[in-house]
Amino acid sequence: MTVVEAKNLHKRYQLGKHVVNALDGVNFCVEKGEFVAIMGASGSGKSTLLHLLGGLDKPSDGEVILAGKRLSVLDDGQATLVRRHNVGFVFQFYNLLPTLTAEENIMLPILIDGKDPRYYEQRLQTLLELVGLSDRRRHKPDQLSGGEQQRVALARALITEPAIVLADEPTGNLDSKTGVLIMELLRRSCDQLSQTIVVVTHDPRAATYADRIVFLKDGQIKVEIQLKHNQTPVQRLRLVMKTMAKLEA
């Protein structure tokens, strides 16, 4: 079952007198329970693709179908509701509310939706255990490390059981050890919760946790590789590096 589908996506920006093609005819889809990584150099259009997939921005041409809904025909209010119910976001800089505790930050989408948080207590417990923060649930962001903050952000993205989690450079602001931890968590939520995940990253090590890697260059998908379960991490990394080298050449 397809969770999100991009059809002939184009995104153009006006930069002074020049028109920049951030995306140039991208066709792309993600199946339920799939973990996809989008890779590419700076300016390759990977973040733009993620924004369009999550309904944060509108394409210049083409369309995105998310959870069966054509995002391009929705107005802002409708797109907001689609996001609220179907998408979980993880940002590079965590973006937690400094005034709320970890658990309150996690429950934020539930509260925004006007639902009673008590019904989600079980889900909260599960997620806190998954991200390993049960003992720090009442801490505020400034009392948490970067890795812990990103884990809270991940739990927040998962609380509504969204159709898809979109992560934009989730390890970009973390040291490599903590980065590994976050990627393992994403992997685990895919495996244990059947969560569909799309991660944008330029870190090849992070990308090896995905089932499939899509390589973007100049706004176009150049290569896609499928990673197998029986491959060792080293084999996966070698494959990713080789593809990247080929693409650069």
């Binding site: 802002d76 209010g77 907001t80 509701l81 609220r84 976001f89 973006n95 989408p109 925004i112 927040r156």
Partner: peptide
Amino acid sequence: REFGMLRTVGMTRF
């Protein structure tokens, strides 16, 4: 950024 984040997680403009 805070308001932007609230919007991404589904808060409407209103």
